[in-house]
Design a protein around this nucleic acid. Structure first.
Length: 621
DNA sequence: TTTAGGG
DNA sequence: CCCTAAA
């Protein structure tokens, strides 16, 4: 019998279903939307070739369809059906429906993108772990689908094709078009969707003529927003895409590893892992193992199993993404090399420190940024699983800061993302190994990793939320993605920041311009914020805060601490100090106008900082 | 194991 | 950043 392939279309917020079923399995309804995919009848010959259906056959099927009052125009499946589409595949040599596609879906508007942006950003950026969790779970929930959900784009851009295997077709196209569609089961942390859209735009730009893809992705994206479960595939892909971007993705080396088909693997490019990757992977692996062994020694039975099952997909995903040829391709390699965005350059001048310094600063930030995400990708996933307590929450609910998303998070996202593309220096993998002369002629290897601005901001934000001293908490919640930063690191950094902030008085702001050519200066606003937080959390005596040595700090800390003052208490207040307002504002801008600001977050930040500080400095400082 | 603090 | 003491 004929098998009519039904596809689901998620349209206007709901699935519409109709009893469009033939001999095949569950078929959902086709809705004739703005972007129909026309299924073309083909016959599958005995040898597997596809032969265009004859008119008679078409008539025949047409009648059948007519009986069911179904149009032959089916709408493209946007991927919600995920691997379930595979049900379309039949072994009979009977006319089948096959799709080609109109381009109308490229009509999707920017507004849609914005909508979805906002939507996704409502997910607490800092709750990335939970997002990972959820999407993992979602992935699991679609588990009954035999194929991985990996449709990023609808497939044929107006061309007819007799290719029957949609999955395959899409994959092919996707491979050619998209920047990333690999590691479908690994959990990247994608916090703001705007990055994804930027990503797409980037792709479009870089791919030149293939602009149709972008809207397609947006469509998927849009469709996803109200149907997380069904769209888990897309979400995943989007996340991956974003994740890729976060880690210096490059267009040329992202052959999707979405599925495990060996045939696909064979075609994938093979890459040699970098030294850094190997190092980091071994790190990750050792962590996994240690985690496993601990678990298995300490617990038995179900616990063990659950842990295993958690770890496993990750590993598989990694292996999978490497092309399957036994060669592992580290994310590290996905470095995108391109020039800085012009708006960055344009706005850089707003940096309070001054143009040249600002330029240096940004440059360094850019360079440094590129170093981070490389090895966080792996650990990130692991951490994510270990920090499932976070829940997605709307951004706007800022005031109840407890588990809310942090504006800074978003900023960091942008920052992390933005400069990444810029990175000219490429893989900085070898920079981490630094030999440090230890006084008496000894030279030891120091595992030094420069703190990026975004990390600093995250730290500051973390302190503001959880309180200084709750380093492990901050690490776990705010620094989940920075596996290489330990809670001790956070503490140390905070200590340094504190010192710096106290050294830098409103009177002598130029302090940053001193001979620190090599060290990236920390923006005054951040230091300001640090001191504010310190004051509020009584790490520093307010009266001394106006630019005094750190001398009495310790005593105050102890007194306050021992007095039992909950450090978490002041943090709500800390949120809306002037500097906090700056950060919040800039991140809000990025939230609201991602396509405008996500790529120049620091610029925005600095601009606002300049404006607000000039205002506050006069009236308050 | 986490935190604080010295080196 | 490392190390260690203390909790």
């Amino acid at each position: 019998m004929e098998t009519v392939v039904g596809v689901e279309r998620y349209d206007e917020g709901k699935f519409e279903e109709s009893g469009f079923e033939k001999s095949s399995s569950s078929l959902s309804s086709p809705k004739l939307g703005a972007d129909p995919v026309v299924y073309k009848l083909v016959r599958i010959e005995g040898d597997g070739r596809f032969v265009p259906a004859t008119d008679d056959e078409i008539m025949e099927v047409g009648n059948l369809l007519a009986d069911d009052k179904i149009e032959m125009h089916l709408v493209a499946d946007t991927g919600q059906t995920g691997g379930c589409i595979s049900s379309e595949r039949t072994s009979s040599g009977i006319p089948q429906l096959e799709n080609s596609e109109g381009l109308s879906q490229s009509e999707n508007t920017e507004a849609d993108a914005g909508k979805s942006n906002v939507h996704l950003e409502e997910n607490d950026p800092s709750s990335a772990p939970s997002m990972n969790e959820s999407h993992i779970n979602q992935s699991g929930s679609v588990g009954e689908c035999s194929n991985p959900p990996n449709e990023l784009v609808e497939a044929t851009f107006g061309r007819e094709t007799t290719v029957k295997d949609k999955q395959w077709l899409k994959r092919r196209i996707t491979m050619g078009l998209t920047n990333s569609c690999d590691v479908s089961t690994s959990s990247f942390v994608i916090k703001d969707n705007k990055l994804v859209n930027k990503d797409k735009e980037e792709n479009r730009n870089n791919l030149g003529s293939d602009s149709a893809k972008d809207p397609a992705v947006r469509t998927v994206n849009d469709n996803c927003k109200d149907s997380p479960i069904n769209c888990s595939g897309q979400i995943e892909n989007l996340q991956i895409a974003s994740g890729e971007r976060l880690r210096n993705s490059s267009i040329d080396d992202d052959f999707g590893a979405e599925d495990l088909n060996t045939e696909e693997r064979a075609a994938k490019r093979v890459r040699k892992p970098t030294r850094r990757y190997i190092e980091e992977l071994s790190e990750v692996e050792s962590k996994e193992h240690s985690g496993k062994s601990i678990a298995s020694t300490k617990n038995s039975g179900l616990r063990q199993i659950s842990i295993k099952s958690n770890v496993r997909p990750f590993k598989m995903a990694r292996m999978d993404s490497f092309g399957g040829s036994g060669v592992e391709v580290p994310y590290v390699c996905r470095v995108r090399r391109s020039r800085p965005r012009k708006n960055v350059m344009a706005l850089m001048g707003f940096h309070p420190i001054g143009m040249s310094v600002a330029a240096t600063l940004v440059k360094k930030a850019i360079v440094v940024h590129n170093t981070q995400p490389n090895n966080e990708s792996g650990d990130e996933a692991l951490k994510a699983r270990s920090a499932p307590e976070q829940i997605q929450q709307p951004v706007m609910a800022e005031p109840e800061k407890d588990k809310q998303s942090s504006p800074v998070d978003s900023i960091e996202q942008g920052q992390n993302v933005e400069p990444k593309h810029i990175d000219p220096s490429g893989d900085t993998s070898d920079e981490n190994v630094v030999t440090v002369p230890t006084g008496k002629g000894g030279i030891r290897r120091k595992h030094h990793r420069a703190w990026t601005l975004s990390e600093v901001m995250k730290l500051v934000e973390g302190v503001s939320r959880y309180g200084a001293g709750r380093w492990s908490e901050i690490k776990r919640l705010a620094f989940a993605s920075y596996s290489y930063r330990t809670s001790v690191d956070l503490k140390d950094k905070w200590r340094n920041l504190l010192k710096a902030s106290l050294a830098q008085t409103p009177q002598d702001k130029k302090i940053n311009s001193r001979k620190h050519a090599s060290a990236m200066p920390i923006p005054a606003a951040i230091l300001l914020r640090v001191r504010e937080l310190a004051e509020m959390q009584s790490q520093v005596s307010p009266n001394l805060s106006s630019g005094k040595p750190v001398a009495s700090t310790g005593r105050n800390v102890h007194e306050t601490r021992s007095s039992g003052t909950p450090l978490t208490e002041p943090r709500n207040n800390a949120t809306y100090t002037p500097v906090a307002l700056v950060t919040t504002s800039s991140s809000l801008l990025c939230f609201l106008f991602p396509h405008k600001y996500s790529l120049s977050l620091w610029s925005v930040f600095n601009l606002l900082q300049l404006l607000l500080r000039s205002a506050f400095t006069q009236s308050r400082l």
